[in-house]
């Protein structure tokens, strides 16, 4: 998954950069060197190269990579199906293209992109299926679209990520991804 790649690259880069800063700091504290600041070259190294050029270089590469990854995750192009998601205090309702609805369980075909059209009826919630995609807020009065895709059949936990009141901690649901060819046994989830 690309976001995971992004994370590992950023973690590695951060480790290297923080190690660089800490080592320079340690040497600076230890060397108790002669007061040699009057040489203008020093300022150029510290502020010009380390302070300016290095971060600009690193950050521009990161930004370009990030914009590219973000662009690829956008819901453009056709999706296998679109599910209407409504969040409320304290539950989740999913309505499918065939007109049926379920509460507390979202059923999606595995291996296919699915668009969720997310809204809320009372306060702001946020839909988050940690293993499938980033978050998308459920905001009263507007519909936000999130594209998800489960690589393989299975069950995925999902939570509400935006504080929505006293029931926030238990405001959860489950995603069930079924094999795409199999008959979608849509029983009403017990909630």
């Amino acid at each position: 998954m690309r976001v995971a790649d992004l994370w590992w690259w950023m973690l590695g880069g951060s480790a290297i950069l923080s190690a660089l800063v800490f080592i320079l700091l340690l040497i600076a504290l230890r060397r108790r060197g002669a007061a040699d600041n009057r040489q203008p070259g020093r300022t150029r190294v510290w502020i010009g190269w380390l302070g300016l050029v290095m971060p600009v270089g690193v950050l521009m590469v990161l930004l370009a990579f990030a914009l590219w990854v973000g662009q690829r995750n956008l819901p453009v192009g056709p999706a296998a199906q679109t599910v209407q998601v409504t969040a409320f205090n304290y539950g989740w309702e999913f309505c499918y293209e065939d007109g049926s609805c379920s509460q507390g369980v979202l059923r999606i075909p595995a291996g296919q992109p699915v668009d969720l059209d997310i809204t809320a009826t009372d306060v702001i919630h946020s839909l988050w299926i940690p293993r499938l995609a980033g978050k998308m807020d459920a905001i009263p009065g507007q519909v936000n679209r999130l594209r998800i895709e489960a690589d393989a059949p299975g069950t995925f936990e999902a939570v509400c990520a935006e504080y929505c009141g006293v029931g926030h901690a238990d405001h959860r649901f489950v995603v069930e991804a079924y094999a795409a060819g199999a008959p979608a046994g849509r029983t009403e989830a017990a909630e």
């Binding site: 930004l63 370009a64 914009l67 590219w68 973000g70 956008l74 819901p75 453009v76």
Partner: peptide, 14 residues
């Protein structure tokens, strides 16, 4: 220049 870079590469309204 940098803050405008997304104009070049990103879908406009999605």
């Amino acid at each position: 220049i940098v803050t405008g870079l997304p104009i070049l590469a990103i879908s406009s309204c999605v």
